[in-house]
Design a binder for these strands. Structure first.
Length: 483
RNA sequence: GCCCCCAUCGUCUAGUGGCCUAGGACACCACCCUUUCAAGGUGGCGGCACGGGUUCGAAUCCCGUUGGGGGUGCCA
């Protein structure tokens, strides 16, 4: 429990957790912690969500993944919106009794009909002075006062709205249930929220909320509307069209730290990034430096390429043991973990995602006596030089006759260097190791790219390495099809 | 339609009137290093939407234009 400012995060459970939501949650979290305040998690437990408790659990999990832990003293909740149901009704009643709201018996269709006839849009205040009593089918509307409403926003400054452009909006439906707008304000008041930090899309609704706070006799919270996240078409990231589920990135092998770091740099750059020549920062540094006033006001494109770049950096910086554990968890169960540990240091700085680990080392795990899948193009290219076939044969023979105790990366390398010295290129130059290793690499791994070759051979072992080399030699000897 | 927000390299941004010949990061390209690929190093490409003001001086302030986005429900 803390007594600093109180922030809130209010996701509606929909089965997946939006990356944009993750970012605003992070903003709130950074501020709550740095300012010695609290982040209150309030969940909209709609009827649908109540029947799917896993949705709520998903939110808690997702938050925990990005470091917003329910165990942290700065965290409060989750609180379910339904807990305040009575307060919603009571607030509506108070507003009505104070004359700040009135009942109206027009249906939605009738409202539209009138607007059409009057040549206006929206509700025209028809029942403002009709003094209607509450009754079935009658909605409670807020009496928007004259004048204007100024929203003081930490990222946008003062935004003024002319109240005449805001219609007398509905607070309570004809069936007696409160509208979300009212519920939201009442919830925030009940939770004693002092700071509302959310996405820019809510800015146009803010004057309505502020008027409600005031009509209910409360000082409105400090507002902050951060820019939305957009796709390449510059449209707000949508669940339908874009990959927005935080958990999908987690499942793809994105590290939480990388995601958090990347999300925080959208719309904001930590001071010192330029001097550092890097935007990679620890959460502690991000939290200490984050200021709403410094947040950029324009929408930001969620660039997966940059996320990947961050992820590579974070994977690279993982302690080896942790890398082995985490990447190992992505591997098929029957793969030898000791063997993976042996090759792990050589793939760690090459992976874009944790989940790429299997594909990077699969040639070590296909089993003895089994050839890895061969990439024909790589084979053809590697075997194109005049010397390649002979060199492959010589290396195979040399590796085969190597004493078992000398089957190590250094010896393997020296051996091939020794052999390649006996060959010259078609232009008479020396054969370089970069070229000479190609036939061996394709022979053993099936591909032209992969972890360092000699280290891979060492891990694969002499018997299987030589067997694959022999198979390749045989293949190289096969006459090519006539033209 | 009405209301609101936004506008610096392809992308994310630094920049709050002179330090800007506009800096960094990601991406891309080249070279170096090199055991392929990565990583690392060096260099390159590339931007203040447009038009008016204000000012000795504008990416920065003001107005307009254009463009983009969001909101506008008896949805949440």
């Amino acid at each position: 429990m803390t007594n600093g400012p109180r922030f809130r995060f209010a996701p509606s459970p929909t089965g997946s957790f939006h990356v944009g939501g993750a970012r605003t949650a992070l903003h709130n979290w950074a501020l709550a912690r740095r300012l010695g305040g609290t982040l209150v998690l309030r969940i909209e437990d709609t009827d649908e969500a109540r029947n799917r408790p896993e949705w709520t659990e998903g939110i808690i999990d997702a938050l925990a993944w990005i470091g917003i832990s329910a165990d942290d003293p700065h965290f409060e909740g989750p609180i379910f919106q339904s807990a305040y149901a009575d307060a919603h009704v009571a607030a509506a009643q108070r507003l009505y009794e104070a004359g700040a709201a009135y009942y109206c018996d027009l249906t939605g269709e009738q409202v539209q009909q009138r607007a059409k006839e009057l040549g206006t849009t929206g509700y025209d205040g028809y029942s403002r002075d009709r003094g209607l009593e509450p009754g079935p089918g009658r909605v409670l509307r807020f009496r928007v006062p004259d004048g204007s409403t100024v929203v003081c926003d930490a990222v946008r400054g003062e935004v003024e709205f002319d109240n005449s452009t805001i219609e007398d909006f509905v607070l309570v439906r004809g069936n007696g249930t409160p509208m979300f707008l009212l519920a939201n304000v009442v919830d925030d008041m009940s939770m004693e929220i002092t700071d509302v930090v959310r996405a820019e899309e809510h800015l146009p609704n803010t004057p309505k909320q502020q008027m409600l706070w005031e009509a209910l006799g409360h000082e409105p919270p400090r507002w902050a509307h951060v820019p939305v996240l957009v796709n390449e078409q510059r449209k707000k990231l949508s669940k339908r069209r874009d990959k927005v589920a935080l958990e999908s990135y987690r499942d793809d092998g994105i590290l939480a730290n990388a995601m958090v770091n990347y999300l925080m740099t959208l719309g904001w750059t930590p001071p010192g990034a330029e001097e550092a020549g890097s935007e990679i920062f620890s959460w502690a540094d991000l939290e200490a430096a984050f200021r709403l006033e410094d947040v950029n006001r324009s929408p930001a494109f969620f660039d997966e390429k940059k996320l990947i770049a961050f992820n590579k950096a974070y994977i690279r910086d993982l302690p080896l043991d942790e890398f082995v554990d985490r990447a190992g968890a992505e591997l098929p169960d029957d793969w030898d973990r000791e063997r993976f540990r042996a090759i792990a240091p050589h793939i760690q700085e090459r992976l874009e995602r944790l989940s790429d680990a299997a594909g990077a080392v699969d040639f070590l795990f296909v089993g003895d006596g089994v050839d890895p899948e061969l990439d024909e193009a790589s084979w053809t290219k590697a075997m194109t030089p005049e010397w390649s076939s002979s060199l492959l044969g010589d290396v195979t023979a040399a590796y085969e006759s190597l004493p078992a105790e000398r089957w190590d990366a250094d010896t393997l390398k020296v051996t091939i260097e020794d052999i390649m010295g006996r060959f010259t290129t078609e232009t008479g130059g020396a054969v370089k190791l970069g070229k000479a290793q190609a036939p061996v690499r394709v022979a053993v791994t099936g591909r032209s790219v992969g972890p360092p070759l000699f280290e891979s051979l060492e891990v694969l072992g002499q018997a299987e390495s030589v067997r694959r080399l022999r198979a390749a030699v045989t293949r190289a000897d096969e006459p090519t099809a006539p033209d």
